[in-house]
């Protein structure tokens, strides 16, 4: 399979008044055509920043170093007009908060047609009818009428459908969905996830799904990348990550998914939700050993001094932990 997106040794630094924050450190990953990859990690693990840098959308104080190639073309440092021929056309991004990510002052029709008119050179009328068809496809009822409404006239779930429709307009090879369901109700979340997996079936786009919710990944992805403190700690097929997680952080994440049946500490009657103790590290200083060491139940002395490399296991499963060797 050919790589749509190939990230190699990516480092992202933010200069803040309190000092430099090392948000992403030596991260490498690749996404193949048609593949769906889940990026999992807690807030501040750098998972969104990786892909914002891909889209050229890092905040002004952020700097990305390393390499990010899209179909072999280097994106980092690419000139704006060349980048604009790629983003929105061949790769598109769906953002976390549909409430604020649509322009409140422009009609939906305007926000959609401008993409097609800019990139595909369509006339306004053509762009409009395509936009309406795309809205119908993502399940907006009465799309022909609603296309002329403003974002505030849509519910949260409907707005996220509009965001998705907007991202799909140019049939991109790569869709980056940054926590597409976080801001929505649980029932709406399920609808949006169903929609995403349905669309994946018909479009053959590669999907990167950024989330902190492992449940979302299980339903939608082929592969998972678990990030911690700006590094990949474990990656592998969904099945391997869920049934045989190797990194203590992944194990902790899986254990902290709420379950209905009681097998927690409190016994069957009062199941307690498990949590990973401690806080993610401060990324302002270079971390010498394993970033997870302070919170790791299996920590040993070596973990404090020496950073573990990502070591391949089997089936593309890889893990960065001193306690885990190749099988």
């Amino acid at each position: 399979m050919t790589a749509v997106l190939d990230i190699d040794d990516l480092n992202i630094r933010f200069s803040t008044p309190e000092g430099t924050v090392n948000a992403v450190n030596g991260l490498s990953l690749s996404v193949s055509a048609g593949e769906s990859v889940g990026i999992v990690g807690e807030s501040g693990s750098g998972k969104s920043q990786v892909f914002l840098s891909t889209m050229g959308l890092l905040a002004k104080n952020g700097r990305a170093k390393g390499s990010t190639r899209f179909h072999g073309e280097e994106l980092l440092g690419l000139k704006a007009d060349r980048l604009n021929a790629i983003r929105g056309v061949r790769m598109a991004m769906i953002f976390q908060d549909p409430m604020t990510s649509l322009n409140p002052y422009l009609r939906i029709s305007r926000q959609m047609t401008e993409v097609l008119m800019e990139h595909k050179g369509l006339s306004r009328a053509e762009a409009r009818s395509r936009s309406i068809r795309m809205l119908e496809r993502v399940g907006i009822p009465e799309a022909a009428k609603r296309v002329d409404m403003y974002p505030h006239e849509f519910s949260g779930g409907m707005r996220q459908r509009v965001m998705i429709a907007m991202a799909l307009l140019c049939e991109p090879d790569l869709i980056i969905a940054d926590e597409p369901t976080t801001a929505l109700d649980v029932t709406i979340q399920a609808q949006i996830l169903d929609l995403l997996s349905e669309l994946r079936g018909d479009t053959n786009s590669a999907v990167v799904l950024i989330t902190h919710d492992l449940g979302v990944v299980a339903g939608l992805c082929d592969r998972v990348v678990v990030m911690y403190a700006g590094r990949v700690v474990e990656t592998g097929l969904v099945r391997d990550i869920f049934y045989s997680p190797r990194h203590p952080y992944t194990v902790g994440l899986l254990e902290s998914i709420p379950r209905l049946e009681g097998d927690g500490e409190g016994g069957a009657e009062h199941p307690r939700l498990k949590a990973i103790d401690g806080q993610p590290p401060n990324l302002q200083s270079e971390i010498a050993g394993c970033a997870f060491a302070p919170r790791c139940p299996r920590v040993e002395e070596r973990c404090q001094q020496e950073r573990p490399d990502l070591i391949g296991l089997d089936n593309g499963h890889a893990c960065a932990c001193h306690k885990v060797g190749p099988t």
Binding site: L57, V89, F95, D97, S101, L102, E118
Partner: peptide
């Protein structure tokens, strides 16, 4: 604002 980031993500020219 987030919606300006969206506009950039859509690959629109800076002027637009």
């Amino acid at each position: 604002a987030n919606f300006v980031r969206t506009a950039r993500a859509k690959g629109l020219r800076e002027r637009i």
